[in-house]
Amino acid sequence: MGTLVTLHLPPGSPLAGLPWVVTIGSLGDQEGWDPLVCGPYEREHALALARAVVIDDDLMAVVEPMLALDGVAAIRKEIEQVRATALDDGDDTVAEPITSSGAAVGDPPEPAEVRAAWRRMATRLAG
Rank of each mutant, 00 (worst) to 15 (best):
A16R: 12
I24S: 01
A126L: 03
S101H: 13
W33T: 11
A95N: 04
R120K: 13
R124I: 05
Q30C: 07
W118K: 04
R43Q: 04
R83D: 10
G71S: 09
I55S: 14
P65Y: 02
P19H: 04
A95H: 07
I75S: 01
L36Y: 06
P10G: 12
D57S: 11
E78I: 01
D57Q: 14
A116D: 12
L125Y: 05
L4F: 00
R124P: 07
G12N: 08
L4K: 01
A74M: 02
R120D: 11
G25C: 06
T85D: 11
G12H: 11
I75R: 00
T6H: 13
E64D: 15
V114A: 06
E64N: 07
P109G: 07
E110C: 08
V54H: 08
P14Y: 03
M1I: 01
M121R: 03
T99W: 08
S101W: 07
V5K: 14
D34W: 07
H45R: 01
P109D: 07
E113F: 09
A103M: 11
G127Q: 00
V82Y: 05
D56I: 02
M121T: 06
D56Q: 10
P11Y: 09
A112W: 07
R120I: 10
A52N: 12
V5C: 12
L125A: 13
E64H: 08
D89K: 09
Y41P: 02
A16G: 07
P111C: 02
E64I: 09
P14E: 10
A95V: 00
I98P: 06
S26G: 12
T99S: 15
G2R: 02
S26K: 09
A50R: 01
G12P: 05
L36Q: 11
L49I: 15
V5T: 12
V105H: 15
D34F: 06
E113L: 09
S26R: 07
M66Y: 08
R76Q: 14
P108D: 11
R76H: 14
D58G: 11
G17E: 13
D89N: 04
A46W: 03
R120E: 13
S26C: 15
L7R: 11
M121L: 15
A68K: 05
H8T: 14
A122C: 10
P111N: 06
Y41I: 01
V53K: 04
A73S: 15
P111G: 11
L67A: 13
A50N: 00
V105Y: 06
A126N: 01
L59G: 02
P109A: 05
V21L: 07
A104T: 08
E80P: 02
A73V: 03
P19T: 01
M60N: 03
A112P: 01
M66S: 08
W118F: 10
A84V: 03
A126Q: 02
Y41G: 03
G32Q: 05
R43F: 01
P11R: 13
G127R: 00
R51Q: 15
A116C: 05
V37T: 15
V62D: 02
G28L: 05
G71H: 09
V94W: 13
Q81Y: 02
R83H: 08
G17P: 01
D57G: 00
T23W: 01
L4P: 05
